[in-house]
Computed example of a mutant assay.
Amino acid sequence: MSKNFSRREFIAGAGILLAGSALRLRGAAVPAAEQIIDIHQHISYMGRSDADLMFHQRALGVTRTIMLPSGTPVKRPSTHDGKSNGLQAKAGGNEACYQLAQQYPKELLFGANEVPDLPGAKAEIEKYLKLGAVVIGELKFGVDCDSKEMQAIYELAQAYNVPVLMHWQFNMYNYGFDRFYKMLEKYPKVIFVGHAQTWWANVDKKYTDQQGLYPKGKITPGGITDRLLSDYPNVYADLSAGSGLNSITRDEEHAQAFLNKHQNKLMYGSDCLDTTGQVKDCSGAGTLAEVRKLVTDKTALHKILYKNAQQVFRL
């Protein structure tokens, strides 16, 4: 065993046992007693090892992590002829997430997923729901959000009382964002968790160029995403990845008001392939630092970091 690996394992193990001290990210202390539920991570993310994944999560101070699997690797339009296999990130599938969660039952939870228009998709997802999956997703496929295949997944989520987590990316994943409200109204008992570029770009009322996935500058409240969170009780949001981080750093004045306004609907996620947990390298660490900076009320902060997730995923 290399010295580097031993050091990581020592630090990771020590992180679990800390009771009165804190792990430190650059610019942000992580109190050991503070819970953090990370609702969005992946196994084998761009080749990252399981050891590096666990080190990263512990370095962030995450107490529980939900592993989101990919679907079966296939070449068909819904996977862009295979380009989107592994969630376009070499992410592991259902069985890999399930097995790793068995190794770390106190730290890891798992989701269930499948290519929606693949024959047997419902049976594959249901298999892992019966094994204890707490979410369906990450749904990241080239299909219409209101297609019969996606509606079959929403019906399954309703039957098992689990949320669905959707990656919104214009002209790439989950087509028809402007029609999505119809699904919210048709399936009011299903909790939908929004994520990714198109979701977060649309917090801005003046956002019109749907091709621009990481817009910059001041935000005008009242965009589609803002309205969905306000108007539909079954809509929640996942702050993960560069898109979530961009949405709260591009206009901190807006972000502070937005985080306060939707404190009951927002959940922390990392969705990063980093291995260190350092703010300068890691969007997950950056999001944690930014949320702590902008959300000064402890009650609201705890909702975003873990209480909303406890409710949504019934933990």
Rank of each mutant, 00 (worst) to 15 (best):
K140S: 15
G223P: 03
H80D: 12
K216W: 03
P163I: 12
K127C: 11
G137F: 09
R48I: 09
L17G: 08
P116M: 05
A300P: 04
Y181I: 03
K206N: 15
A123K: 13
S70W: 04
P221R: 01
K140V: 13
Y181C: 02
T220G: 05
L60R: 01
V190R: 07
A121V: 11
G142V: 04
R250A: 00
S44P: 02
P73I: 02
R7I: 14
A89E: 04
L239C: 14
P233R: 10
A89D: 02
S270L: 09
V74E: 01
G61P: 00
L118V: 02
A19L: 13
N264P: 03
H254A: 10
G27T: 02
A133L: 06
N4I: 07
N85E: 12
G223M: 03
L165T: 15
K83A: 08
R292Y: 08
A285Y: 04
N260D: 11
C97W: 05
W168Q: 15
N94Y: 14
R7L: 14
H40C: 10
A152T: 13
M46F: 15
I191P: 02
G61D: 00
A28F: 13
E155C: 08
V312N: 06
M183L: 11
G269P: 06
Y45N: 15
I11W: 11
I136Y: 13
H195F: 04
S243C: 00
K130W: 03
Q158N: 13
K148V: 13
K280E: 11
M172H: 06
V162K: 10
A112V: 12
L87Y: 05
Q41I: 05
M267D: 01
N161M: 04
T63L: 01
A255F: 06
G244Y: 00
